[in-house]
Simulated scan of single mutants.
Amino acid sequence: MDGNTKPRKKLDAAEMGVIAHLYRGEVYRSTIWRTRLDTTTNWSVVTLGVALSITFSSPQASPLPLVLVGILIIFFLMLEARRYRYFNVWRARCRWLELHFMAPMLKEGDLHLEECWQDTLAEDYLHPRYHVSLWTAIGRRIRRNYFWILLIQTVAYLGKLIVHPYPIQIPEQLLQRASIGPFPGWLVLTVGLVYCTSWGIIAYLSGRADAARARHHGSQTGMG
Rank of each mutant, 00 (worst) to 15 (best):
Thr47Phe: 10
Trp117Phe: 07
Gly25Lys: 01
Ile202Val: 15
Ser57Glu: 05
Arg215His: 10
Thr31His: 13
Tyr125Gly: 05
Val27Arg: 05
Ala178Gly: 13
Ile152Met: 10
Met223Ser: 12
Thr55Lys: 03
Pro7Glu: 09
Gly109Leu: 08
Arg208Gly: 02
Lys6Arg: 12
Leu161Gln: 01
Leu22Cys: 12
Arg213Lys: 07
Glu123Pro: 00
Leu22Ile: 00
Ile152Leu: 15
Gly17Arg: 06
Asn4Glu: 14
Gln169Met: 12
Val194Glu: 09
Leu106Met: 11
Leu99Tyr: 09
Thr31Phe: 11
Glu15Ile: 02
Ser53Trp: 00
Glu114Val: 01
Thr35Arg: 11
Gly25Leu: 02
Ile54Gln: 15
Thr31Gln: 13
Leu193Lys: 04
Pro59Phe: 13
Glu114Phe: 00
Asp2Gln: 11
Glu172Ala: 13
Gly3Ser: 12
Asp110Cys: 01
Ala214Gln: 10
Pro184Ala: 08
Val27Lys: 12
Leu175Phe: 15
His164Trp: 14
Leu99Cys: 06
Cys116Ile: 06
Val67Trp: 00
Glu15Cys: 04
Arg141Ser: 09
Arg29Cys: 08
Met223Ala: 14
Thr197Phe: 15
Leu121Phe: 04
His131Pro: 03
Tyr86Asn: 01
Leu66Trp: 00
Gly218Glu: 12
His127Cys: 09
Val50Met: 12
Leu52Asp: 11
Pro7Trp: 02
Arg177Leu: 11
Thr31Pro: 02
Arg140Leu: 08
Arg177Glu: 07
Leu79Arg: 07
Val67Gln: 08
Val45Ile: 13
Gly49Cys: 10
Trp135Thr: 12
Thr136His: 03
Arg24Trp: 08
Trp96Met: 01
Tyr204Asn: 10
Glu172Cys: 03
Asp38Lys: 09
Ile71Asp: 13
Met16Trp: 02
Ile149Val: 15
Leu72Asp: 13
Leu187Asn: 04
Leu48Glu: 07
Ala212Arg: 15
Val46Arg: 13
Glu98Cys: 00
Arg141Asn: 06
Leu175Asn: 05
His131Lys: 10
Leu134Ser: 09
Ile149Ala: 03
Ile19Pro: 07
Lys107Asn: 10
Ala20Pro: 02
Gln176Glu: 14
Ile142Cys: 09
Val27Phe: 06
Tyr204Asp: 05
Ala13Leu: 10
Asp12Cys: 09
Ser57Val: 06
Met105Trp: 07
Ser133Cys: 07
Trp90Ser: 03
Leu66Ser: 02
Arg82Ala: 14
Ser58Trp: 04
Ile170Lys: 14
Gly222Pro: 01
Lys160Glu: 05
Glu115Pro: 02
Lys6Pro: 03
Arg213Pro: 01
Ala20Asn: 13
Arg208Tyr: 04
Ala209Trp: 05
Gly222Val: 06
Ala214Lys: 14
Leu48Met: 12
Leu22Ser: 10
Leu11Val: 04
Trp43Glu: 14
Gly181Cys: 08
Asp119Arg: 14
Leu158Trp: 07
Gly207Asn: 02
His112Leu: 06
Leu193Gln: 05
Leu113Thr: 05
His131Ile: 09
Ile162Val: 08
Arg85Val: 02
Val89Trp: 14
Ile142Ala: 10
Val89Arg: 15
Leu175Pro: 05
